[in-house]
Design a protein around this nucleic acid. Structure first.
Lengths: 137, 137
DNA sequence: GTCTTCCATAAGTATTAGGTTATGGATAGT
DNA sequence: ACTATCCATAACCTAATACTTATGGAAGAC
């Protein structure tokens, strides 16, 4: 109960059905019935997936006539990307443009600044590996 | 069981302890005992977290003397970022540089091409919202 | 060999997740 | 008012998560 925001977002993304729902919402808002149609799954199951997505802030919902529309909210995806961006240096060789992207993403993600438990007793990391040329003069 | 790779990676990231472990491994390989020290949690609990991370391909492990070292493997993080990159257009206004980043990330993430269930019976999306100026001439 | 340190694995428990069927409320059409 | 459609909620089941304590194996130190 009451896990942090990033965990909730990653948790919501850890399900292929929910990722597929988000992908479809990228093309426009959809009703529950339309979202449920492609899946071999009952309508209540989809409703619960939508509830999880809503809880993570990944969708918002509105009513139009008899139908309940789901709308993609991408901000939490930005926060997740911002957290991941810190690791780009570990798989990427071209830092030049990416350092700027990383800095900009972190600047823009001020809403949820990619928090983490910040362990109390960090055992004075004597290693600090790599630290490859990130000093473009 | 046997969920897809992306789900496993996002699932591994959906825990603050595991994210903190990854963050510390970014500074260099560490032994289990060093990883466990900051957390108010038993050593077997950390061992299980490491097993989850290893199952997601996010760390690899080796032996050095009596100690078992964990090493950060960032490739799955790249795949996750690649999946998220598709949504950058939904929170970002400057497409110019980002379209290139997106294209490059997807090109490079050929190992796990951000798969998804690809729902069989897509209900002929009559909406296709926004589709904002992504055609820089 | 014996001891100690590091760590994995087993077994047990409580909670959460992801699905089901059944049902009922809200809204529109007639 | 009656009916049909859309969807949420309840109740239930099973399996997976996230921890615990207890224990034992593997290597280096003595």
């Amino acid at each position: 109960m009451n896990v942090d925001q990033l965990s909730t977002v990653f948790g919501a993304l850890a399900d292929p059905t929910r990722r597929a729902i988000l992908a479809r919402l990228a093309d426009g808002d959809l009703a529950v019935r339309d979202l449920a149609a492609p899946f071999p799954m009952s309508q209540p199951a989809i409703s619960r997936h939508l509830k999880v997505l809503e809880g993570a802030g990944l969708i918002s919902r509105s009513r139009r006539a008899t139908v309940r529309l789901s709308h993609l909210e991408a901000a939490p995806l930005r926060d997740a990307t911002s957290w991941l961006a810190r690791y780009q240096a570990y798989w990427e060789e071209r830092y030049d443009q990416l350092d700027e992207l990383l800095a900009r993403l972190q600047r823009e993600a001020t809403a949820t600044p990619a928090q983490q438990p910040t362990p109390s007793k960090a055992p004075k990391s004597k290693k600090r590996k790599k630290q490859r040329g990130r000093n473009r003069s």
